[in-house]
Amino acid sequence: MGEVHTALLQNSGEIQEPVCRQVLGLMAGETVRVSRRPIAHALSPDLLTGVDCRLPSASQARVRAVGTVVSRCAITGGRVAQGSSYVRVERAAVDRRLSWSHYLSRPGVAEVLGKAKAGDLAAGFLDGAPPDCLDLGAISGRFLDLAQSSPLLDRRAPFRIPRTRLRWVTEVGEPSIRFTLHSDQVRTVRIAHPEPFTPALAALCEDLALHDWLLTTLLVLVERAGIGSAPGAQAAAKLAPAVDHLLHLWMPGAHVGESLAPYWESLDRRPGFTRQWRTLEDRVRDQVALNTLTLLSITAQTGRRCQ
């Protein structure tokens, strides 16, 4: 299970690779992983957070778990930042708490002390953690805030947009994926995968969160532009940030393993992420082109009158 927070990087423009490395250098001596193709992507070192608390459960059962949560931050295209945390929940070999050295030797694993049902824990986590339970969202948000507060960022973002939160769970079973919108900012994903959990599944969910945020943000910018009701030049000006900062970032599955690509393909069939993105992208480009043609026409008419 895990949670990903996605937000516009608090900087006026795209940051380059050297700055990305510094912003994401959250742990001294550890390397920031950077890839340039097919799109620039920087990933911080994994950081561990020790936890000893209740797990959320749909039945409200008191389930205690002890272990470590893996967290990391990412910057895509020098423009979008993410904070991500996940943990693999397993049944403990013994029903008592062991020394921290045991749990540190198993990074990203939380051991359940006592009995628990996987489906009950999954449903409880997706519903949102009560105040006294493991809150992966708080951990993800803290690491994202840490990156966003870097003194290397000028905090002059080109537009204001809320961050989104995507909670996810994976279970062993026949391949399937279910994506659900709960509010303007909260989404959940439930994945069944035939093999045991690997970090590649976390990367898939981070990619889903990134593209969900891009689509959500483009929708908001198009709505704010007031196409059809506002003057053409005004609408085009409000759409300019989409052209400058968002449209080139759409590359679903760019950092997802080939074996997990069918999950993205499933979402592209229904609800149709890419189909909706292309429709919005065409609308933005058409509006900008129409405004340009209008300005050229006005300029030409003015020139003829001056002759």
Rank of each mutant, 00 (worst) to 15 (best):
C73D: 03
R269Q: 05
L296G: 13
R224T: 11
A240M: 08
N11A: 01
D207N: 05
Q148T: 06
R167Q: 05
D120H: 04
E17F: 09
H5D: 00
L247A: 07
A157Y: 05
T279L: 13
A237N: 09
D244P: 14
R155P: 06
G253L: 01
D135Y: 02
F197P: 01
G128E: 03
L214I: 10
E14N: 10
L144R: 03
E30K: 13
G226Q: 01
R178T: 09
S259E: 13
W277S: 06
L121A: 05
V94D: 03
W213R: 00
A237K: 10
C53R: 14
S57K: 05
D268F: 03
P252E: 12
G141P: 00
E174C: 12
V63R: 07
G303E: 14
E90I: 13
R36G: 10
L98F: 11
S259M: 13
A237V: 03
R278F: 13
T164D: 02
A200M: 07
T217A: 02
R155T: 12
G253I: 01
R96F: 12
W264H: 04
A203H: 13
L126H: 00
R21T: 12
R62H: 12
A203M: 15
R97E: 03
R106D: 09
F179L: 15
L181F: 13
D286W: 13
P241Q: 07
R64C: 12
F159C: 04
G67Q: 06
V243L: 12
A261N: 10
R88M: 14
D207E: 05
A65G: 12
P107R: 06
L218S: 01
H245A: 01
L166C: 08
L221S: 00
N11S: 06
H5T: 01
W264T: 02
E281K: 12
D282Q: 15
Q301F: 14
T292Q: 14
R304G: 04
V243K: 14
I161C: 11
Q301M: 11
V80N: 00
D282K: 15
C306Y: 15
G114H: 03
G50R: 15
V66N: 09
L208A: 00
A118H: 12
V186C: 12
L146G: 07
L290W: 09
L219P: 08
R270C: 14
V66F: 08
E174I: 09
L290K: 14
L204D: 04
I75P: 01
A93Y: 08
V284T: 11
R190P: 05
S105A: 15
S183A: 06
L134R: 07
V34K: 05
A203N: 10
W277L: 02
L113H: 11
V51R: 06
E30P: 02
G253P: 00
W168N: 02
V69S: 07
S150M: 07
D145G: 03
P107V: 06
L280A: 11
